[in-house]
Design a protein around this nucleic acid. Structure first.
Lengths: 288, 288
DNA sequence: TTAATATGCTGCATATTTGCAGCACTATAG
DNA sequence: CTATAGTGCTGCAAATATGCAGCATATTAA
Protein backbone atom coordinates (compact mmCIF):
# COMPACT_ATOMS: atom_id res chain seq x y z
CA UNK A 1 0.00 0.00 0.00
CA UNK A 2 1.40 3.36 -0.98
CA UNK A 3 1.61 5.92 1.75
CA UNK A 4 -0.20 9.07 1.00
CA UNK A 5 2.00 12.10 1.34
CA UNK A 6 0.32 14.09 4.07
CA UNK A 7 1.74 17.33 2.69
CA UNK A 8 -0.23 16.82 -0.53
CA UNK A 9 -3.33 17.17 1.59
CA UNK A 10 -2.44 20.81 2.09
CA UNK A 11 -2.48 21.24 -1.67
CA UNK A 12 -5.77 19.39 -2.08
CA UNK A 13 -7.35 21.60 0.53
CA UNK A 14 -6.12 24.79 -1.11
CA UNK A 15 -7.48 23.72 -4.51
CA UNK A 16 -10.78 22.91 -2.83
CA UNK A 17 -10.78 26.36 -1.20
CA UNK A 18 -9.73 28.35 -4.24
CA UNK A 19 -11.46 26.38 -6.99
CA UNK A 20 -8.56 26.14 -9.39
CA UNK A 21 -5.02 24.85 -9.67
CA UNK A 22 -3.77 28.27 -10.71
CA UNK A 23 -5.32 30.15 -7.81
CA UNK A 24 -4.11 27.56 -5.33
CA UNK A 25 -0.60 27.80 -6.76
CA UNK A 26 -0.59 31.56 -6.21
CA UNK A 27 -1.70 31.14 -2.62
CA UNK A 28 0.81 28.39 -1.92
CA UNK A 29 3.52 30.33 -3.76
CA UNK A 30 4.53 27.40 -5.94
CA UNK A 31 4.34 26.64 -9.62
CA UNK A 32 0.98 25.57 -11.06
CA UNK A 33 2.53 22.39 -12.37
CA UNK A 34 3.56 21.42 -8.87
CA UNK A 35 0.02 21.74 -7.62
CA UNK A 36 -1.34 19.77 -10.56
CA UNK A 37 1.13 16.96 -10.05
CA UNK A 38 0.60 16.74 -6.33
CA UNK A 39 -3.17 16.62 -6.78
CA UNK A 40 -2.83 13.88 -9.37
CA UNK A 41 -0.39 11.93 -7.20
CA UNK A 42 -2.66 12.18 -4.21
CA UNK A 43 -5.71 11.01 -6.16
CA UNK A 44 -3.70 8.15 -7.61
CA UNK A 45 -2.35 6.99 -4.26
CA UNK A 46 -5.73 7.24 -2.63
CA UNK A 47 -7.40 5.72 -5.70
CA UNK A 48 -10.16 8.25 -5.45
CA UNK A 49 -11.26 11.09 -7.73
CA UNK A 50 -11.43 14.26 -5.69
CA UNK A 51 -11.86 16.88 -8.42
CA UNK A 52 -13.68 17.18 -11.74
CA UNK A 53 -12.80 19.69 -14.42
CA UNK A 54 -15.09 22.68 -14.30
CA UNK A 55 -15.50 25.65 -16.63
CA UNK A 56 -13.09 27.78 -14.67
CA UNK A 57 -11.04 25.29 -12.70
CA UNK A 58 -11.71 22.27 -10.50
CA UNK A 59 -14.87 21.28 -8.65
CA UNK A 60 -15.14 18.73 -5.87
CA UNK A 61 -16.74 15.38 -6.59
CA UNK A 62 -19.64 14.58 -4.26
CA UNK A 63 -17.77 11.71 -2.64
CA UNK A 64 -14.83 13.96 -1.80
CA UNK A 65 -16.82 16.28 0.44
CA UNK A 66 -16.23 14.13 3.50
CA UNK A 67 -12.59 13.94 2.69
CA UNK A 68 -12.26 17.69 2.55
CA UNK A 69 -14.05 17.90 5.87
CA UNK A 70 -11.40 15.62 7.38
CA UNK A 71 -8.65 17.66 5.76
CA UNK A 72 -10.06 20.82 7.33
CA UNK A 73 -9.98 19.14 10.70
CA UNK A 74 -6.36 18.24 10.17
CA UNK A 75 -5.57 21.79 9.15
CA UNK A 76 -7.23 23.25 12.22
CA UNK A 77 -5.40 20.82 14.47
CA UNK A 78 -2.09 21.78 12.93
CA UNK A 79 -2.72 25.53 13.11
CA UNK A 80 -3.69 25.10 16.76
CA UNK A 81 -0.51 23.14 17.34
CA UNK A 82 1.64 25.75 15.66
CA UNK A 83 0.11 28.57 17.64
CA UNK A 84 0.59 26.64 20.86
CA UNK A 85 4.24 26.14 20.08
CA UNK A 86 4.75 29.74 18.96
CA UNK A 87 2.94 30.93 22.05
CA UNK A 88 5.52 29.39 24.30
CA UNK A 89 8.51 30.79 22.51
CA UNK A 90 10.54 32.76 25.02
CA UNK A 91 13.34 34.05 22.86
CA UNK A 92 13.61 37.68 21.79
CA UNK A 93 14.74 36.65 18.36
CA UNK A 94 13.32 35.26 15.16
CA UNK A 95 10.45 36.23 12.93
CA UNK A 96 7.39 38.23 13.87
CA UNK A 97 4.58 38.89 11.39
CA UNK A 98 2.67 42.13 11.79
CA UNK A 99 -0.21 43.23 9.61
CA UNK A 100 -1.58 46.69 9.18
CA UNK A 101 -2.99 48.92 6.43
CA UNK A 102 -0.99 51.23 4.22
CA UNK A 103 -2.30 54.31 5.94
CA UNK A 104 -1.26 53.17 9.40
CA UNK A 105 2.04 51.96 8.03
CA UNK A 106 2.66 55.44 6.71
CA UNK A 107 1.58 57.34 9.77
CA UNK A 108 1.89 55.14 12.81
CA UNK A 109 4.22 52.21 12.39
CA UNK A 110 6.99 53.71 10.34
CA UNK A 111 8.71 55.81 13.01
CA UNK A 112 8.21 53.29 15.78
CA UNK A 113 9.52 50.30 13.84
CA UNK A 114 12.96 51.86 13.91
CA UNK A 115 12.91 52.29 17.68
CA UNK A 116 11.64 48.74 18.09
CA UNK A 117 14.46 47.49 15.93
CA UNK A 118 17.01 49.33 18.06
CA UNK A 119 15.60 47.82 21.20
CA UNK A 120 15.30 44.27 19.80
CA UNK A 121 17.88 43.78 17.07
CA UNK A 122 17.34 40.02 16.84
CA UNK A 123 13.64 40.15 16.11
CA UNK A 124 12.90 40.24 12.39
CA UNK A 125 9.61 42.00 11.79
CA UNK A 126 7.72 41.07 8.63
CA UNK A 127 5.28 43.86 8.00
CA UNK A 128 2.33 42.79 5.88
CA UNK A 129 0.72 45.93 4.51
CA UNK A 130 -2.63 45.00 3.18
CA UNK A 131 -6.05 46.50 3.20
CA UNK A 132 -7.70 43.13 3.51
CA UNK A 133 -7.96 41.36 6.85
CA UNK A 134 -5.39 38.68 7.51
CA UNK A 135 -6.40 35.74 9.63
CA UNK A 136 -4.53 35.47 12.93
CA UNK A 137 -6.01 32.02 13.51
CA UNK A 138 -4.37 30.69 10.40
CA UNK A 139 -1.06 32.32 11.28
CA UNK A 140 -1.23 34.69 8.34
CA UNK A 141 0.10 37.14 10.92
CA UNK A 142 1.03 37.15 14.59
CA UNK A 143 -0.05 40.72 15.41
CA UNK A 144 -2.54 43.04 13.75
CA UNK A 145 -2.72 46.79 14.12
CA UNK A 146 -6.01 48.06 12.79
CA UNK A 147 -8.92 50.35 13.59
CA UNK A 148 -12.03 48.73 14.92
CA UNK A 149 -14.93 49.65 17.13
CA UNK A 150 -15.19 46.13 18.44
CA UNK A 151 -12.32 43.64 18.08
CA UNK A 152 -13.17 40.03 17.30
CA UNK A 153 -14.04 38.20 20.47
CA UNK A 154 -11.55 35.44 19.70
CA UNK A 155 -8.59 37.82 19.69
CA UNK A 156 -6.90 39.65 22.54
CA UNK A 157 -5.33 43.07 22.51
CA UNK A 158 -5.50 46.61 23.65
CA UNK A 159 -6.61 49.97 22.38
CA UNK A 160 -3.66 52.14 21.39
CA UNK A 161 -5.33 55.47 20.68
CA UNK A 162 -8.32 57.12 19.03
CA UNK A 163 -8.55 57.72 15.33
CA UNK A 164 -10.61 60.77 14.57
CA UNK A 165 -12.18 61.37 11.17
CA UNK A 166 -12.90 64.37 9.06
CA UNK A 167 -14.38 65.18 5.70
CA UNK A 168 -11.86 66.70 3.30
CA UNK A 169 -11.69 68.15 -0.19
CA UNK A 170 -9.60 70.51 -2.28
CA UNK A 171 -10.77 74.14 -2.38
CA UNK A 172 -11.95 73.86 -6.00
CA UNK A 173 -14.42 71.16 -5.02
CA UNK A 174 -15.56 73.18 -2.02
CA UNK A 175 -16.08 76.31 -4.09
CA UNK A 176 -18.31 74.43 -6.50
CA UNK A 177 -20.50 73.27 -3.64
CA UNK A 178 -23.99 74.64 -3.29
CA UNK A 179 -24.91 75.68 0.26
CA UNK A 180 -26.30 72.77 2.31
CA UNK A 181 -25.61 70.36 -0.51
CA UNK A 182 -22.61 68.56 0.88
CA UNK A 183 -24.39 65.26 0.97
CA UNK A 184 -25.44 65.61 -2.66
CA UNK A 185 -21.92 66.29 -3.88
CA UNK A 186 -19.57 63.72 -5.40
CA UNK A 187 -17.87 61.46 -2.84
CA UNK A 188 -15.10 58.99 -2.77
CA UNK A 189 -16.42 55.75 -1.30
CA UNK A 190 -15.01 52.63 0.35
CA UNK A 191 -14.24 49.28 -1.25
CA UNK A 192 -13.71 45.80 0.17
CA UNK A 193 -12.66 45.67 3.80
CA UNK A 194 -13.29 49.36 4.39
CA UNK A 195 -16.89 48.95 3.27
CA UNK A 196 -17.88 46.76 6.18
CA UNK A 197 -16.55 49.08 8.88
CA UNK A 198 -18.65 51.57 10.90
CA UNK A 199 -17.36 54.41 8.76
CA UNK A 200 -18.34 52.46 5.66
CA UNK A 201 -21.81 52.03 7.09
CA UNK A 202 -21.99 55.71 7.92
CA UNK A 203 -21.09 56.76 4.40
CA UNK A 204 -23.59 54.32 2.92
CA UNK A 205 -26.34 55.69 5.17
CA UNK A 206 -25.35 59.31 4.59
CA UNK A 207 -24.53 59.62 0.91
CA UNK A 208 -26.65 58.39 -1.97
CA UNK A 209 -25.16 55.60 -4.01
CA UNK A 210 -25.19 57.56 -7.27
CA UNK A 211 -23.04 60.24 -5.63
CA UNK A 212 -20.21 57.82 -5.04
CA UNK A 213 -17.95 58.30 -8.01
CA UNK A 214 -14.94 56.19 -6.90
CA UNK A 215 -14.22 53.47 -4.38
CA UNK A 216 -10.93 52.66 -2.73
CA UNK A 217 -9.91 50.14 -0.07
CA UNK A 218 -7.12 52.39 1.22
CA UNK A 219 -7.14 55.74 2.99
CA UNK A 220 -3.89 56.72 1.34
CA UNK A 221 -5.44 56.12 -2.04
CA UNK A 222 -8.57 58.02 -1.01
CA UNK A 223 -6.43 60.97 0.01
CA UNK A 224 -4.67 60.99 -3.32
CA UNK A 225 -7.99 60.86 -5.13
CA UNK A 226 -9.34 63.71 -3.02
CA UNK A 227 -6.21 65.77 -3.69
CA UNK A 228 -6.85 65.21 -7.39
CA UNK A 229 -10.22 66.88 -7.00
CA UNK A 230 -12.38 63.83 -7.58
CA UNK A 231 -14.68 64.52 -4.67
CA UNK A 232 -15.26 64.64 -0.97
CA UNK A 233 -13.44 62.15 1.22
CA UNK A 234 -13.84 60.84 4.71
CA UNK A 235 -10.34 60.41 6.09
CA UNK A 236 -8.54 59.84 9.38
CA UNK A 237 -7.46 63.26 10.59
CA UNK A 238 -3.81 62.19 10.77
CA UNK A 239 -3.97 61.79 6.99
CA UNK A 240 -6.24 64.67 6.08
CA UNK A 241 -4.70 67.33 8.32
CA UNK A 242 -1.31 66.34 7.01
CA UNK A 243 -2.17 67.17 3.41
CA UNK A 244 -1.18 70.57 2.09
CA UNK A 245 -3.91 70.47 -0.55
CA UNK A 246 -6.92 69.33 1.43
CA UNK A 247 -9.24 71.44 3.49
CA UNK A 248 -11.34 69.95 6.24
CA UNK A 249 -15.07 70.68 6.24
CA UNK A 250 -16.89 71.75 9.33
CA UNK A 251 -19.02 68.67 9.21
CA UNK A 252 -19.33 67.03 12.62
CA UNK A 253 -18.32 63.37 12.46
CA UNK A 254 -17.21 62.86 16.06
CA UNK A 255 -19.30 59.73 16.36
CA UNK A 256 -17.02 58.08 13.83
CA UNK A 257 -14.02 58.26 16.13
CA UNK A 258 -12.66 54.70 16.23
CA UNK A 259 -10.13 52.89 18.35
CA UNK A 260 -6.84 51.79 16.92
CA UNK A 261 -6.13 48.34 18.34
CA UNK A 262 -3.16 46.06 18.54
CA UNK A 263 -4.40 42.47 18.46
CA UNK A 264 -3.02 38.99 18.71
CA UNK A 265 -4.28 35.45 19.13
CA UNK A 266 -4.77 34.23 22.73
CA UNK A 267 -2.36 31.36 22.06
CA UNK A 268 0.41 33.86 21.37
CA UNK A 269 0.14 36.12 24.43
CA UNK A 270 3.00 34.36 26.19
CA UNK A 271 5.36 34.61 23.23
CA UNK A 272 8.27 36.83 24.18
CA UNK A 273 8.44 38.38 20.74
CA UNK A 274 4.76 39.19 20.55
CA UNK A 275 4.86 40.63 24.03
CA UNK A 276 7.87 42.79 23.26
CA UNK A 277 6.19 44.16 20.15
CA UNK A 278 2.84 44.83 21.79
CA UNK A 279 4.49 46.52 24.73
CA UNK A 280 6.66 48.73 22.58
CA UNK A 281 3.78 49.97 20.47
CA UNK A 282 1.47 50.39 23.41
CA UNK A 283 3.98 52.64 25.09
CA UNK A 284 4.72 54.56 21.92
CA UNK A 285 1.15 55.20 20.89
CA UNK A 286 -1.02 55.19 23.95
CA UNK A 287 -2.81 58.30 25.00
CA UNK A 288 -1.17 59.80 28.10
CA UNK B 1 6.98 32.14 7.65
CA UNK B 2 8.08 28.75 6.42
CA UNK B 3 5.36 26.23 5.86
CA UNK B 4 5.86 23.07 7.78
CA UNK B 5 5.78 20.02 5.58
CA UNK B 6 2.83 18.04 6.88
CA UNK B 7 4.37 14.80 5.71
CA UNK B 8 7.31 15.32 8.05
CA UNK B 9 4.80 15.01 10.84
CA UNK B 10 4.40 11.35 9.95
CA UNK B 11 8.13 10.90 10.48
CA UNK B 12 8.11 12.77 13.77
CA UNK B 13 5.31 10.59 15.00
CA UNK B 14 7.06 7.39 14.04
CA UNK B 15 10.27 8.44 15.81
CA UNK B 16 8.19 9.29 18.87
CA UNK B 17 6.55 5.86 18.69
CA UNK B 18 9.68 3.84 18.07
CA UNK B 19 12.19 5.82 20.12
CA UNK B 20 14.96 6.03 17.56
CA UNK B 21 15.71 7.27 14.08
CA UNK B 22 16.87 3.84 12.99
CA UNK B 23 13.78 1.99 14.18
CA UNK B 24 11.49 4.56 12.63
CA UNK B 25 13.37 4.30 9.35
CA UNK B 26 12.83 0.54 9.30
CA UNK B 27 9.13 0.97 9.92
CA UNK B 28 8.77 3.71 7.33
CA UNK B 29 10.95 1.73 4.89
CA UNK B 30 13.25 4.64 4.15
CA UNK B 31 16.90 5.38 4.81
CA UNK B 32 17.86 6.50 8.31
CA UNK B 33 19.38 9.66 6.91
CA UNK B 34 16.06 10.63 5.42
CA UNK B 35 14.34 10.35 8.78
CA UNK B 36 17.09 12.32 10.48
CA UNK B 37 16.95 15.11 7.93
CA UNK B 38 13.17 15.34 7.98
CA UNK B 39 13.13 15.49 11.78
CA UNK B 40 15.74 18.22 11.75
CA UNK B 41 13.92 20.15 9.04
CA UNK B 42 10.66 19.95 10.92
CA UNK B 43 12.22 21.13 14.17
CA UNK B 44 13.95 23.97 12.34
CA UNK B 45 10.78 25.12 10.57
CA UNK B 46 8.73 24.92 13.71
CA UNK B 47 11.58 26.45 15.73
CA UNK B 48 10.95 23.93 18.48
CA UNK B 49 13.04 21.10 19.87
CA UNK B 50 10.97 17.93 19.82
CA UNK B 51 13.61 15.31 20.62
CA UNK B 52 16.66 15.02 22.85
CA UNK B 53 19.43 12.50 22.35
CA UNK B 54 18.99 9.53 24.64
CA UNK B 55 21.24 6.56 25.37
CA UNK B 56 19.56 4.41 22.77
CA UNK B 57 17.91 6.89 20.45
CA UNK B 58 15.67 9.93 20.78
CA UNK B 59 13.43 10.95 23.67
CA UNK B 60 10.64 13.50 23.55
CA UNK B 61 11.17 16.87 25.21
CA UNK B 62 8.49 17.69 27.77
CA UNK B 63 7.13 20.54 25.67
CA UNK B 64 6.69 18.27 22.68
CA UNK B 65 4.17 16.00 24.39
CA UNK B 66 1.23 18.16 23.38
CA UNK B 67 2.52 18.32 19.89
CA UNK B 68 2.68 14.56 19.61
CA UNK B 69 -0.83 14.38 20.94
CA UNK B 70 -1.98 16.64 18.11
CA UNK B 71 -0.02 14.56 15.62
CA UNK B 72 -1.80 11.42 16.83
CA UNK B 73 -5.12 13.13 16.30
CA UNK B 74 -4.11 14.00 12.78
CA UNK B 75 -3.02 10.43 12.15
CA UNK B 76 -6.31 9.01 13.40
CA UNK B 77 -8.27 11.46 11.28
CA UNK B 78 -6.32 10.45 8.22
CA UNK B 79 -6.65 6.72 8.84
CA UNK B 80 -10.38 7.19 9.32
CA UNK B 81 -10.50 9.12 6.08
CA UNK B 82 -8.60 6.47 4.17
CA UNK B 83 -10.78 3.69 5.46
CA UNK B 84 -13.91 5.66 4.53
CA UNK B 85 -12.63 6.12 1.01
CA UNK B 86 -11.50 2.51 0.68
CA UNK B 87 -14.81 1.36 2.08
CA UNK B 88 -16.71 2.93 -0.79
CA UNK B 89 -14.53 1.52 -3.51
CA UNK B 90 -16.80 -0.39 -5.85
CA UNK B 91 -14.29 -1.70 -8.33
CA UNK B 92 -13.25 -5.34 -8.43
CA UNK B 93 -9.66 -4.35 -9.08
CA UNK B 94 -6.67 -3.01 -7.24
CA UNK B 95 -4.86 -4.00 -4.11
CA UNK B 96 -6.25 -5.99 -1.20
CA UNK B 97 -4.17 -6.67 1.91
CA UNK B 98 -4.88 -9.91 3.74
CA UNK B 99 -3.12 -11.03 6.90
CA UNK B 100 -2.92 -14.54 8.32
CA UNK B 101 -0.41 -16.78 10.08
CA UNK B 102 2.04 -19.10 8.39
CA UNK B 103 0.10 -22.19 9.43
CA UNK B 104 -3.17 -21.00 7.95
CA UNK B 105 -1.35 -19.80 4.87
CA UNK B 106 0.00 -23.28 4.40
CA UNK B 107 -3.19 -25.14 5.05
CA UNK B 108 -6.15 -22.91 4.33
CA UNK B 109 -5.36 -19.98 2.09
CA UNK B 110 -2.98 -21.49 -0.37
CA UNK B 111 -5.39 -23.56 -2.45
CA UNK B 112 -8.18 -21.02 -2.33
CA UNK B 113 -6.05 -18.06 -3.34
CA UNK B 114 -5.67 -19.60 -6.77
CA UNK B 115 -9.43 -19.99 -7.24
CA UNK B 116 -9.96 -16.43 -6.01
CA UNK B 117 -7.41 -15.21 -8.52
CA UNK B 118 -9.20 -17.01 -11.33
CA UNK B 119 -12.51 -15.48 -10.38
CA UNK B 120 -11.12 -11.94 -9.87
CA UNK B 121 -8.06 -11.48 -12.05
CA UNK B 122 -7.86 -7.71 -11.45
CA UNK B 123 -7.64 -7.88 -7.70
CA UNK B 124 -4.06 -8.01 -6.47
CA UNK B 125 -3.94 -9.79 -3.12
CA UNK B 126 -1.02 -8.88 -0.85
CA UNK B 127 -0.78 -11.69 1.67
CA UNK B 128 0.93 -10.66 4.88
CA UNK B 129 2.03 -13.81 6.63
CA UNK B 130 2.91 -12.89 10.14
CA UNK B 131 2.40 -14.40 13.55
CA UNK B 132 1.90 -11.01 15.14
CA UNK B 133 -1.42 -9.21 14.96
CA UNK B 134 -1.68 -6.51 12.32
CA UNK B 135 -3.89 -3.54 13.02
CA UNK B 136 -6.90 -3.24 10.73
CA UNK B 137 -7.62 0.22 12.10
CA UNK B 138 -4.29 1.52 10.88
CA UNK B 139 -4.75 -0.12 7.49
CA UNK B 140 -1.88 -2.52 8.06
CA UNK B 141 -4.30 -4.95 6.43
CA UNK B 142 -7.81 -4.93 5.01
CA UNK B 143 -8.81 -8.48 5.94
CA UNK B 144 -7.54 -10.83 8.65
CA UNK B 145 -7.97 -14.59 8.75
CA UNK B 146 -7.13 -15.88 12.18
CA UNK B 147 -8.35 -18.18 14.96
CA UNK B 148 -10.07 -16.55 17.86
CA UNK B 149 -12.66 -17.44 20.41
CA UNK B 150 -13.95 -13.87 20.50
CA UNK B 151 -13.19 -11.40 17.73
CA UNK B 152 -12.46 -7.80 18.69
CA UNK B 153 -15.70 -5.94 19.11
CA UNK B 154 -14.55 -3.18 16.76
CA UNK B 155 -14.18 -5.56 13.81
CA UNK B 156 -16.80 -7.35 11.74
CA UNK B 157 -16.61 -10.76 10.21
CA UNK B 158 -17.79 -14.30 10.18
CA UNK B 159 -16.75 -17.68 11.45
CA UNK B 160 -15.39 -19.85 8.65
CA UNK B 161 -14.96 -23.19 10.40
CA UNK B 162 -13.75 -24.89 13.57
CA UNK B 163 -10.13 -25.52 14.31
CA UNK B 164 -9.70 -28.61 16.46
CA UNK B 165 -6.54 -29.23 18.47
CA UNK B 166 -4.60 -32.26 19.46
CA UNK B 167 -1.46 -33.10 21.42
CA UNK B 168 1.23 -34.67 19.27
CA UNK B 169 4.71 -36.13 19.60
CA UNK B 170 7.08 -38.48 17.79
CA UNK B 171 7.00 -42.13 18.95
CA UNK B 172 10.42 -41.89 20.67
CA UNK B 173 9.11 -39.19 22.97
CA UNK B 174 5.95 -41.20 23.66
CA UNK B 175 7.91 -44.36 24.46
CA UNK B 176 9.99 -42.51 27.06
CA UNK B 177 6.87 -41.30 28.83
CA UNK B 178 6.00 -42.64 32.24
CA UNK B 179 2.36 -43.66 32.63
CA UNK B 180 0.14 -40.74 33.67
CA UNK B 181 3.03 -38.35 33.41
CA UNK B 182 2.10 -36.53 30.26
CA UNK B 183 1.76 -33.23 32.02
CA UNK B 184 5.22 -33.62 33.58
CA UNK B 185 6.92 -34.27 30.27
CA UNK B 186 8.79 -31.73 28.13
CA UNK B 187 6.50 -29.47 26.13
CA UNK B 188 6.84 -26.96 23.35
CA UNK B 189 5.22 -23.73 24.46
CA UNK B 190 3.82 -20.60 22.82
CA UNK B 191 5.55 -17.27 22.30
CA UNK B 192 4.25 -13.76 21.58
CA UNK B 193 0.79 -13.59 20.02
CA UNK B 194 0.09 -17.30 20.56
CA UNK B 195 0.71 -16.91 24.27
CA UNK B 196 -2.31 -14.70 24.86
CA UNK B 197 -4.81 -17.01 23.14
CA UNK B 198 -7.11 -19.48 24.95
CA UNK B 199 -4.83 -22.33 23.95
CA UNK B 200 -1.90 -20.38 25.37
CA UNK B 201 -3.81 -19.97 28.62
CA UNK B 202 -4.70 -23.65 28.66
CA UNK B 203 -1.09 -24.71 28.28
CA UNK B 204 0.04 -22.30 30.96
CA UNK B 205 -2.57 -23.66 33.38
CA UNK B 206 -1.92 -27.28 32.47
CA UNK B 207 1.85 -27.62 32.20
CA UNK B 208 4.41 -26.38 34.69
CA UNK B 209 6.66 -23.59 33.51
CA UNK B 210 9.86 -25.58 34.01
CA UNK B 211 8.55 -28.26 31.63
CA UNK B 212 8.37 -25.82 28.74
CA UNK B 213 11.64 -26.34 26.95
CA UNK B 214 10.99 -24.20 23.80
CA UNK B 215 8.62 -21.47 22.73
CA UNK B 216 7.45 -20.64 19.22
CA UNK B 217 5.00 -18.12 17.84
CA UNK B 218 4.08 -20.32 14.89
CA UNK B 219 2.29 -23.68 14.66
CA UNK B 220 4.37 -24.65 11.65
CA UNK B 221 7.51 -24.10 13.67
CA UNK B 222 6.04 -25.97 16.63
CA UNK B 223 5.29 -28.94 14.37
CA UNK B 224 8.86 -28.96 13.09
CA UNK B 225 10.20 -28.85 16.65
CA UNK B 226 7.90 -31.70 17.68
CA UNK B 227 8.99 -33.77 14.67
CA UNK B 228 12.57 -33.21 15.84
CA UNK B 229 11.71 -34.90 19.13
CA UNK B 230 11.98 -31.86 21.34
CA UNK B 231 8.76 -32.55 23.21
CA UNK B 232 4.99 -32.63 23.25
CA UNK B 233 3.12 -30.13 21.14
CA UNK B 234 -0.39 -28.76 21.04
CA UNK B 235 -1.26 -28.33 17.38
CA UNK B 236 -4.26 -27.74 15.14
CA UNK B 237 -5.34 -31.13 13.90
CA UNK B 238 -4.97 -30.04 10.26
CA UNK B 239 -1.26 -29.68 10.94
CA UNK B 240 -0.70 -32.56 13.31
CA UNK B 241 -2.71 -35.19 11.46
CA UNK B 242 -0.92 -34.21 8.27
CA UNK B 243 2.51 -35.09 9.63
CA UNK B 244 3.94 -38.48 8.81
CA UNK B 245 6.17 -38.41 11.90
CA UNK B 246 3.79 -37.29 14.62
CA UNK B 247 1.40 -39.38 16.66
CA UNK B 248 -1.63 -37.93 18.32
CA UNK B 249 -2.16 -38.62 21.99
CA UNK B 250 -5.47 -39.70 23.36
CA UNK B 251 -5.65 -36.58 25.48
CA UNK B 252 -9.06 -34.90 25.32
CA UNK B 253 -8.72 -31.23 24.35
CA UNK B 254 -12.13 -30.67 22.75
CA UNK B 255 -12.70 -27.56 24.80
CA UNK B 256 -9.85 -25.92 22.89
CA UNK B 257 -11.71 -26.06 19.61
CA UNK B 258 -11.56 -22.51 18.29
CA UNK B 259 -13.28 -20.66 15.47
CA UNK B 260 -11.38 -19.57 12.42
CA UNK B 261 -12.65 -16.10 11.55
CA UNK B 262 -12.41 -13.80 8.58
CA UNK B 263 -12.45 -10.22 9.84
CA UNK B 264 -12.46 -6.71 8.46
CA UNK B 265 -13.00 -3.17 9.65
CA UNK B 266 -16.61 -1.90 9.63
CA UNK B 267 -15.57 0.96 7.34
CA UNK B 268 -14.55 -1.56 4.70
CA UNK B 269 -17.65 -3.77 4.54
CA UNK B 270 -18.97 -2.02 1.46
CA UNK B 271 -15.73 -2.27 -0.48
CA UNK B 272 -16.32 -4.49 -3.47
CA UNK B 273 -12.89 -6.07 -3.18
CA UNK B 274 -13.22 -6.89 0.48
CA UNK B 275 -16.66 -8.29 -0.11
CA UNK B 276 -15.52 -10.46 -2.98
CA UNK B 277 -12.70 -11.86 -0.88
CA UNK B 278 -14.77 -12.51 2.20
CA UNK B 279 -17.49 -14.18 0.17
CA UNK B 280 -15.09 -16.40 -1.70
CA UNK B 281 -13.40 -17.69 1.43
CA UNK B 282 -16.61 -18.07 3.32
CA UNK B 283 -17.99 -20.32 0.60
CA UNK B 284 -14.76 -22.24 0.29
CA UNK B 285 -14.25 -22.91 3.95
CA UNK B 286 -17.58 -22.88 5.67
CA UNK B 287 -18.95 -25.97 7.29
CA UNK B 288 -21.81 -27.43 5.18
C1' DT C 1 39.97 -7.58 26.28
C1' DT C 2 38.05 -7.78 21.23
C1' DA C 3 34.26 -8.16 18.10
C1' DA C 4 29.68 -7.38 16.93
C1' DT C 5 25.70 -4.61 16.97
C1' DA C 6 23.24 -0.71 17.76
C1' DT C 7 22.88 4.28 17.56
C1' DG C 8 23.30 9.22 15.27
C1' DC C 9 25.56 11.96 11.84
C1' DT C 10 28.34 13.72 7.38
C1' DG C 11 29.54 13.96 2.45
C1' DC C 12 28.91 12.36 -2.35
C1' DA C 13 26.08 10.23 -6.06
C1' DT C 14 21.57 9.20 -7.66
C1' DA C 15 16.64 9.74 -7.93
C1' DT C 16 12.75 12.57 -7.55
C1' DT C 17 10.41 16.89 -7.44
C1' DT C 18 9.88 21.49 -8.93
C1' DG C 19 10.14 25.39 -12.03
C1' DC C 20 10.04 27.12 -16.60
C1' DA C 21 8.46 27.55 -21.25
C1' DG C 22 5.16 26.56 -24.26
C1' DC C 23 0.84 24.45 -26.05
C1' DA C 24 -4.29 23.91 -26.31
C1' DC C 25 -8.62 25.45 -24.91
C1' DT C 26 -12.19 28.75 -23.08
C1' DA C 27 -14.11 33.14 -21.84
C1' DT C 28 -14.13 38.06 -22.14
C1' DA C 29 -13.35 42.67 -23.91
C1' DG C 30 -12.57 45.86 -27.60
C1' DC D 1 -13.50 39.37 -35.69
C1' DT D 2 -8.74 39.74 -32.90
C1' DA D 3 -6.31 40.24 -28.64
C1' DT D 4 -5.99 39.31 -23.95
C1' DA D 5 -6.33 36.77 -19.85
C1' DG D 6 -7.57 32.89 -17.67
C1' DT D 7 -7.53 27.79 -17.27
C1' DG D 8 -5.16 22.85 -17.36
C1' DC D 9 -1.48 20.10 -19.16
C1' DT D 10 3.31 18.29 -21.32
C1' DG D 11 8.38 17.99 -21.79
C1' DC D 12 13.08 19.54 -20.50
C1' DA D 13 16.40 21.66 -17.17
C1' DA D 14 17.42 22.94 -12.50
C1' DA D 15 16.81 22.30 -7.70
C1' DT D 16 15.93 19.44 -3.90
C1' DA D 17 15.38 15.06 -1.49
C1' DT D 18 16.98 10.47 -0.81
C1' DG D 19 20.07 6.57 -0.64
C1' DC D 20 24.59 4.82 0.09
C1' DA D 21 29.00 4.43 2.31
C1' DG D 22 31.53 5.47 5.97
C1' DC D 23 32.76 7.56 10.51
C1' DA D 24 32.25 8.12 15.62
C1' DT D 25 30.27 6.62 19.83
C1' DA D 26 28.00 3.52 23.08
C1' DT D 27 26.40 -0.98 24.47
C1' DT D 28 26.52 -5.91 24.69
C1' DA D 29 28.29 -10.56 24.24
C1' DA D 30 32.02 -13.83 23.94
Amino acid sequence: MQHINWDNLRYVLMVANKGSIAAAARELEVNRTTVLRRINKFQENLNCRIFDRGDAGYVLTPEAEKMIHAAREVENTLFDMQRQIAGHELKLEGELRVTTTDSFMLSVLGPHLATFRQKHPHIVVDVLVTNSLLDLTRRDADVAIRPTSAPEASLVGRRLCDVEFGVYAVPEVLTALEPDSVLDARWIGFADSLQSTPIGSWLEATVKQQNICLRCDSFVAIRIAAEAGIGLALLPRFLGDDSAKLVRLQLPVDELTTGLWILTHPDLVRSARVNAFVQHFTEALSAP
